[in-house]
Design a protein around this nucleic acid. Structure first.
Length: 729
DNA sequence: TACTGGATTATTTTT
DNA sequence: TAATCCAGTA
């Protein structure tokens, strides 16, 4: 049978063990995704109906990949398998049944931004001092409570006489009641409400238990208590539960992940079969040994030893720099060198860092070096201001109960409806118990609005008109109509700044996402689009075919692999983070170490680690030592620039530099060449970094056009057309 | 009501 | 550093 071809004995066993609880302890790069996909294929070949199969992955991207791969093996039938993230599975269930626990099925989903806004309103409403009650802290307290399935009632009981906790429980109550009033759920609620639904409505639970007779959970080490309950409830009847995970890769404790879920799986399921996948197919043995060296410093792991038949490969490169600018220049230089020499393409390379803020410098240097790159994470596309504004219009049209959306756009663009007016309307809404939009509709009965009344009325007229149009317009038409009527893009155009242009680009991107959605779905609806959009992560849209260097946090890199990996900012105080070191909590440090392990094991061929002895952190210069994790790599596996780089507390001579760091010679690029350029010699063009300049020369380099531009500010630059994205002006 | 500039403050990681 | 907040002004 071809499903079992090219599999090692453990993998085969995992694929064929389909009945009863199964724990697959899969080390990094041991082919667990392959096992999962082949397991699904195996089930289908053995007459399990695809709609009886559910697989939960960490990202939508992983889900899509899994589906594609199953399709390839089985040939067909993958569409009716549920492959999705915890959150999207829950949304799907709740859309159908949440009315059974008192919500409307058209509920909206609040992202972190919305939660924050709502929390601010709660604090205000309860007349608490925002200096003492920080929304961030409150949100995380409530989120942890939800992850542990603690209701406001329970929270209050647990608080006992603790005055502070008692206060938080009040906030928690109010926060939940506001959500309910807005017919909204936050991310955590998606899980909590689903479990609640299952518990309150046994018939619903039974329906899904019968439906999902074969369950698979990927990245099991990162599940939290609610997720654990969700899975347990679903699997309780069939007991065909297969979980795959690696305790060494558990990196989401801050999000409530409970590592005990995997460590104690055999306690919850005493009859569980355990299969270990310990052969690594991904990395060279040097990389793997470096990873093993680091992770062996952790206590409380499941016993396992990863090994590989792969060749030794290059040593781990470690370079230390005077400051973070040089670090970024070095990385850019190395990338130019590697790609220039034909060793690899841009898409083979990833730059990883601990915090999103670190991406900025790399972005700058890569841009100057003319290296195509993509930043994953930082600000989620759908969280950008212009995108959220437009989505809020759509949400208002779709579900006017969502007060936050209405309030967001009521004065965007400026309509002369100010804070005073809004709070008058809000007061009226609270008094009468109606939602904000409802209050807007009867603005004429609200005293004290005077001059703004007409403005409010013209706003509601506009929205009401949109609502009518929504019935026969496509989502794209509706969106374009909104953009046009509000003059959103025209306003941005008038600003004529780089930032405004970037925003317009994002809006166009949003329109094309709408188009894609409408093309891909048989029954595209406004609600459907909004729902799809609410749960996408930035990583989901990363296309593996495109030739870009990827920049992302170590967390985002989980589940991915790259031939060449740069782990940057390897400094105590950055990674492991300052907080971890100062709090002196061994558990926290172990989590950081696992993160380091995840980073190292992303690399297939070469791993480069860099550090800077001086770094600007929020306007302050910090001096950091080389990360302890670097020291934990067996010394013989590391290739150093200078011997003293690894000496602890070594003094760094600022004059000494690396001669090979800066090699931006013109090179062949492996990018798609534009058919023709929409500018020519003599035209004035704009570059996102260098500003405005005049094109002085264009040569056809075969794979791409090489354009020479004389910039007003930056001087003469030679660049490749497909990446420089010059715009004629 | 809108806008400006100065002060303040926050920082891990994300579905 | 960068985002956000707040007071004062037009």
């Amino acid at each position: 049978m071809k499903i079992l071809d090219d599999m090692n004995p453990q993998q085969k066993e995992a694929v064929q063990y389909t009945k009863g609880p199964l724990l697959i302890l899969a080390g990094a790069g041991s082919g667990k995704t392959r096992v999962l996909t082949h397991r699904i294929a195996y089930l289908i070949e053995n007459d399990v109906k695809p709609y009886h199969i559910m697989a939960i992955t960490f990202t939508n991207k992983a889900a899509q990949e899994m589906r594609d791969r199953v399709d390839q093996i089985v040939g067909f039938g993958s569409e009716s398998i549920w492959v999705s993230t915890f959150h999207s599975s829950c949304v799907r269930i709740l859309r159908r049944f949440i009315d059974r626990i008192g919500f409307a099925n058209s509920f909206t989903i609040y992202d972190t931004d919305d939660q924050k806004t709502l929390m601010k309103q709660v604090i205000k409403k309860l007349q608490l001092d925002p200096k003492i009650y920080k929304e961030r802290a409150l949100m995380s307290a409530i989120s942890s409570a939800k992850n542990e399935m603690i209701s406001p009632e329970q929270f209050e009981k647990d608080a006992g006489l603790d005055w502070n906790k008692e206060k938080i429980s009040q906030i928690y109550y109010e926060y939940q009641s506001q959500l309910k009033k807005n017919n909204a759920l936050d991310f955590d609620d998606l899980l909590v409400k689903t479990v609640e639904l299952f518990k309150k409505c046994p018939d619903v639970l039974e329906y899904y238990q019968d439906k999902f007779q074969y369950l698979m959970v990927d990245e099991y080490q990162d599940t939290n208590t609610v997720q654990f309950q969700f899975i347990n409830l679903l699997a309780a009847k069939s007991r065909n539960l297969c979980v795959v995970g690696d305790d060494d890769q558990s990196i989401y404790k801050f999000r409530g992940a409970n590592i005990r879920n995997i460590l104690e799986f055999e306690k919850s399921f005493p009859d569980a079969k355990v299969i270990k996948l310990e052969q690594n197919y991904r990395s060279t043995s040097n990389i793997l040994n470096a990873a093993n060296g680091v992770i062996s410093n952790n206590k409380g792991r499941k016993e396992k030893k990863l090994w590989t038949e792969n060749e030794k490969g290059a040593k781990i490169t470690f370079r230390k720099f005077q400051n973070s600018f040089e670090e970024a220049e070095y990385v850019a230089g190395e990338i130019s060198g590697k790609v220039g020499s034909g060793a690899c393409k841009y898409g083979d390379i990833a730059i990883l860092y601990r915090t999103n803020a670190q991406s900025r410098l790399f972005e700058e240097k890569l841009l100057i070096a003319n290296i195509p790159y993509k930043i994953v994470g930082s600000v989620n596309f759908y969280a950008r201001r212009e995108v959220k504004d437009l989505l809020s219009y759509l949400k208002t049209v779709d579900n006017a109960q969502d007060d936050l959306a209405v309030q967001r756009i009521i004065n965007v663009p400026k309509r002369g409806i100010g804070a005073t007016t809004i709070s008058r309307i809000q007061a009226h809404a609270t008094e009468t118990g109606m939602d904000f939009y409802g209050a807007l509709l009867e603005a004429q009965y609200i005293p004290g609005l005077s001059r703004s009344l007409s403005k409010v009325e013209s706003f509601t007229r506009f929205i009401q008109k949109l609502k009518t149009q929504a019935e026969y317009y496509s989502v794209k038409e509706l969106l374009e109509h909104i953009i046009d009527e509000t003059g959103y893009v025209r306003n941005l155009e008038a600003q004529n700044t780089d930032e405004a242009r970037a925003r317009i680009d994002n809006i166009n991107e949003l329109i094309s996402k709408v188009v894609t959605y409408e093309e891909d779905n048989e029954n595209p609806t406004l609600s459907g689009f909004l729902q799809e959009v609410a749960l996408v992560a930035d990583i989901d849209s990363v296309d593996s075919d495109s030739d870009f260097c990827l920049l992302m946090t170590l967390h985002s890199a989980k589940g991915l692999e790259f031939p060449y990996v740069f782990m940057t900012g390897m400094e105590d105080g950055i990674f492991p983070s300052y907080l971890t070191i100062t709090e002196d909590d061994p558990d926290e440090l172990e989590e950081e170490r696992r993160l380091c392990y995840v980073g190292i094991t992303r690399a297939k061929k070469e791993l480069v680690m860099t550090a800077a002895s001086q770094r600007m952190i929020r306007g302050e210069t910090q001096y950091n030592k080389v990360s302890r994790f670097v020291h934990e790599i067996p010394r013989e596996l590391v290739e150093l620039g200078r011997e003293q780089d690894l000496d602890r507390d070594a003094f760094v001579n600022p004059r000494k530099r690396y001669p090979n760091s800066f090699s931006f010679k013109p090179r062949q690029f492996t990018v798609t060449k534009a058919e023709h350029l929409n500018y020519g010699v003599g035209d004035t063009v704009r570059h996102s970094k260098f500003g405005v300049g005049e094109v002085t020369n264009i040569t056809d380099g075969g794979k791409d056009y090489e354009v020479t531009v004389d910039f007003d500010r930056a001087g003469i630059k030679k660049m490749f057309a497909s990446f420089a994205k010059l715009k004629k002006i």
